[in-house]
Design a protein around this nucleic acid. Structure first.
Length: 414
RNA sequence: GUAGGUGUAGCUCAGCUGGUUAGAGCGUCAGAUUGUGAUUCUGAAUGUCGCGGGUUCGAAUCCCGUCACUUACCCCA
């Protein structure tokens, strides 16, 4: 604390052993759910060519222009730490030919964005993401959303909501922008200066503004969906109808916008109260990514693990609930017993029993305190007397009772 | 990039408008208990008061700078 030299890089942090238990639970249950939906894991490099991201995410997006960690390797090649997982996953898919045309893959791992850290936002953060590759099909979108709901349930997370919207096809974009501008124009002078600028540069971004004045005007303007083509609207309708059949509640929110250029049709977010300003624990949607002249269609989502954890903790879940099982503790009395117990320790471990012991001849009292400290429920005590008799004292820490047994009995007890 | 809050022991924090040797709780270690834990009692160790500079007889305290953490804007998971 006093020294800053041993701290991790700004916005990056260690995940300490007790907390890791929660991470492992999240990852393990995610793997179980993904397996049921027949998705397989892909592990792509953390470092990619810079252009992979500029091409797929869009070279004017904020993520690409001001948030990426970029570097040059010794050969002068421009590289970037991945700011998200879809680009790399799709690069893998695009390189694979036919057999990956309908790939169903998931990934989990660290992502990097050099932003100002705040609640729910780290510079190194972790995502669990999934991509269902294949031609646009509203049923696929619904299936992926259903999977996501399943995932939230598997984690035991309560209170999450899904906000759903469509951003239509690229062909709709011009009509949407024009329609929106036309609707807002009469009230443009009411907007704050910053918002007026955005009216020119990126009208869509006015939709999810946090400014109360902007919000009010946006609420009175027709929904973006109304400016879209009939086929885009039909696509959305099918997604909604399918979700209804699957009994999945979503909130249609026409102000939902996404910051990456590759999205088409369905987009959604999973939000949770009690997360601070960054209330989205997942973002997802359908996309079309052009790579080397090849278009890859798919639908997917990415969940921010740190945010999922924050949401779980906000609902009373703690890492200690997923702590590893308590160990058996071996107490030694005297040097001779200490050495003999080392053999016992290894023998028990080889039988699959988690156990530990003090590796120096400390006082019994200190060893017992240690046993209690690490949460041992059973303590095996062995000193000279027991060595002579070939017995072990087994103590139950909960009620304090103990009995003396021989080896076969000991193994049966543990 | 912009704005607010905070940096004192391993952890959580107290330290009033500057005044001698900088505190508490928890944790750690040890003793009470020479072979028995969570309770109790007793004791011990650990601080360049984030860092650098300034004002002052004197700075943890005031001023300036800087770094870090934190919250929010922007944007996003």
């Amino acid at each position: 604390m006093a020294s800053t030299s041993h701290q991790p890089v700004q916005g990056m942090s260690d995940i300490a052993p007790p907390d890791v238990a929660l991470w492992q639970m999240i990852e393990q249950r995610a793997r179980e759910v993904f397996a049921r939906y027949r998705f397989s894991e892909v592990r792509t490099p953390v470092l990619e060519k810079l252009e992979l991201f500029t091409h797929s995410l869009g070279d004017t997006t904020d993520v690409v222009t001001k948030e990426m960690y970029t570097l040059e390797d010794r050969g002068g090649r421009k590289l970037a730490l991945r700011p998200e997982g879809t680009a790399g996953a799709i690069r893998y898919v695009a390189s694979g030919g036919e057999e990956t045309a309908n790939a169903r893959i998931f990934y989990m791992g660290p992502m990097f964005r050099c932003e100002r850290p705040q609640a729910g936002r780290k510079r190194q953060f972790h995502q669990i993401g999934l991509e269902a590759v294949g031609a646009p099909n509203p049923l696929a979108d619904a299936e992926v959303i259903a999977l996501q709901v399943h995932l939230l349930a598997a984690w035991g997370l309560k209170g999450a909501k899904i906000r759903l919207n469509t951003i239509g096809l690229p062909e709709d974009r011009a009509a949407v922008l024009a329609g929106l501008r036309k609707a807002i124009l009469p009230r443009l002078h009411e907007l704050p200066e910053e918002a007026q600028q955005r009216f020119e540069t990126n009208v869509l971004r006015l939709l999810d503004s946090k400014d109360p004045v902007v919000k009010k005007i946006i609420a009175e303007v027709p929904s973006v969906i109304e400016f879209m083509s009939a086929s885009s609207r039909a696509y959305l309708d099918t997604v909604i109808a399918t979700l209804k059949k699957l009994e999945i509640d979503v909130e249609i929110d026409a102000t939902l916008v996404r910051g990456l250029d590759y999205y088409v049709h369905t987009v959604w977010e999973v939000v949770h109260g009690g997360l601070g300003a960054q209330n989205a624990l997942s973002g997802g949607g359908r996309y079309r990514i052009q790579l080397d002249g090849k278009a890859v269609d798919g639908v997917g989502f990415a969940m921010g693990v740190e945010r999922v954890i924050a949401a779980l903790e906000a609902t009373g879940v703690t890492a200690s609930q997923f702590a590893p099982p308590p160990p058996v503790f071996i107490v030694s009395l005297g040097e001779v017993a200490l050495n003999e117990n080392l053999l016992l320790l290894q023998m028990l471990r080889q039988r699959g029993i988690a156990c530990e012991m003090e590796l120096s001849a400390r006082k019994v009292q200190a060893q017992m305190r240690r046993a209690d400290k690490v949460g041992a429920q059973v303590v095996v005590i062995r000193g000279d007397t027991e060595l002579e008799k070939g017995t072990f004292v087994v103590k139950n820490m909960a009620d304090g009772s103990q009995r003396e047994v021989e080896l076969p009995e000991l193994i049966k007890l543990l």
